[in-house]
Design a protein around this nucleic acid. Structure first.
Length: 406
DNA sequence: AAGTGGATCAACCGCCATAAG
DNA sequence: ACTTATGGCGGTTGATCCACT
């Protein structure tokens, strides 16, 4: 004889919760805690099953839930952890304080997945889509683009390798567990892969995080302060000196995983003959139709006179269909990528644009998102020190969670 | 004003590992 | 040892909103 049923399956309400139901649930949990979800509905006077109550509480009513727009940093964390963990939403949510796995999952499916697709990256594998290469028209474009894609591929190799090592380690531990005696502790569920570690050891994914972290402790140059920190920025970057992730399988020459390198996001640009110039730093330049710049964001962006064919789906167009209104950070990112892929090249032999902008202007309300420097370049400005702290925090969280189950 | 389609997200469904009887 | 409920998780659905025609 097993357990008794948690609740009657008939006569229970389904569908959206009413404010009265919410109040009952909140009042009960605040006074008594949820205890057994099975017993809660009847005690709280709710015609719901325990599972429905649990979901409503954990995904919506819990007081420590943060709602609203995801910050750029949260987005980066989701993308990076998704590359590392896949659709393990609860594990990803564990690294994003006050966000629920359901919310992250929804955000991924409705925003981030589409954005990566727009950038030519397969959101499932985090690999560049094969047709990205095929669509390149010029040989030089292909060559440099493929070099960038190669970084992505190597990144992915490192990730896959880490996962493979995790699986191997898991199997090894399972065998070890079988050999060990019945004195072993009851299995504790591990947040990453639902495995049961027997002896303390960090999951291999932490190798990547640690190596990543160490890359931050060794800035490549003195310009590192105004750089964007994102593996996708690597793809956007023209920096030929980008290093590739370490893989013991395929890239034995490298000893450090230098990811992600800080890079400057190039500015999309268009000249009168639709040729896209780059400066000596391999930054795309954007000549303005009107170089009179003030601090009004709308006005600034409307000076970016972009050809319609270069607009991407997510862009907000104004009425004359010849303007791209870059209000959102994902629009900025998408614009950069769209220009890079559509304008034929990474040829930096074209002279620097003479366009200058006299003052630094914050283009987005989001802190550290993007600034325009004195040369008209957009700098996605994520502070190096903040990122070091950020990844230290992630490592700390992961390590703490590991130590709790060990 | 009505219809349509896309976006969003709360909530449900179904599966799995584990706990409990 | 076996059965079955529970809790947790990821996948999916459908109601709602909103922009556009």
């Amino acid at each position: 004889m097993g357990r008794s049923p948690c609740c009657e399956k008939v006569g229970l309400k389904k569908g959206p919760w009413t404010p009265e139901e919410d109040q009952k649930l909140i009042a009960y949990i605040e006074e008594f805690g949820h205890g057994s979800w099975r017993a809660l509905p009847s005690k709280a006077g709710l015609q719901r099953c325990g599972k429905s109550c649990r979901l409503r509480w954990t995904n919506y009513l819990r007081p420590d839930i943060k709602r609203g727009k995801f910050s750029l940093q949260e987005e980066q964390t989701i993308i990076q952890l998704h590359a590392l963990l896949g659709n393990r939403w609860s594990a990803i949510a564990a690294q994003l304080p006050r966000r629920t796995d359901n919310e992250i999952k929804n955000y991924w499916n409705t925003h981030l997945k589409k954005r990566l697709t727009r950038m030519g990256i397969d959101p499932t594998t985090h690999k560049p889509k094969t047709d990205t290469l095929g669509s390149s028209s010029s040989a030089s474009h292909y060559s440099k683009d493929s070099a960038n894609l190669s970084h992505m591929a190597q990144w992915e190799s490192a990730r896959l390798e880490a996962e493979a090592r995790l699986v191997r380690e898991t199997n090894k531990l399972k065998v070890q567990k079988q050999l060990e005696s019945s004195t072993a502790q009851p299995p504790a569920r591990l947040f990453l892969n639902k495995i049961t570690p027997i002896q303390p050891s960090l999951p291999p994914c932490l190798d990547i995080l640690k190596a990543w972290q160490s890359s931050w402790s060794k800035p490549k140059d003195e310009n590192s302060n105004n750089k964007m920190h994102s593996m996708y920025a690597m793809m956007l970057s023209n920096d030929e000196n980008l290093e590739s992730p370490t893989s013991t399988l395929n890239f034995p020459g490298t000893t450090l995983l230098p990811l992600p390198l800080p890079v400057t996001v190039p500015v999309p640009t268009m000249t009168t003959n639709n040729v896209v110039p780059f400066n000596q730093n391999n930054n795309l330049l954007l000549p303005l139709t009107d170089t009179t710049i003030n601090n009004d964001e709308e006005e600034i962006w409307k000076n970016f006179n972009l050809p319609k064919q270069n607009m991407m789906e997510g862009g907000d167009n104004d009425d004359n269909n010849n303007m791209l209104n870059l209000q959102q950070d994902d629009d900025i990112m998408a614009a950069v990528e769209a220009f890079r892929s559509s304008c034929g090249g990474f040829d930096n032999t074209i002279p620097i644009s003479s366009t200058t902008i006299s003052t630094n202007v914050v283009l987005e309300g989001e802190e550290n998102l993007a600034m325009m420097n004195g040369e008209g370049n957009i700098i996605c400005n994520v502070n190096l020190e903040e990122n070091k702290h950020y990844w230290n925090s992630i490592l700390g969280l992961v390590s703490d969670e590991m130590s709790m189950v060990l």
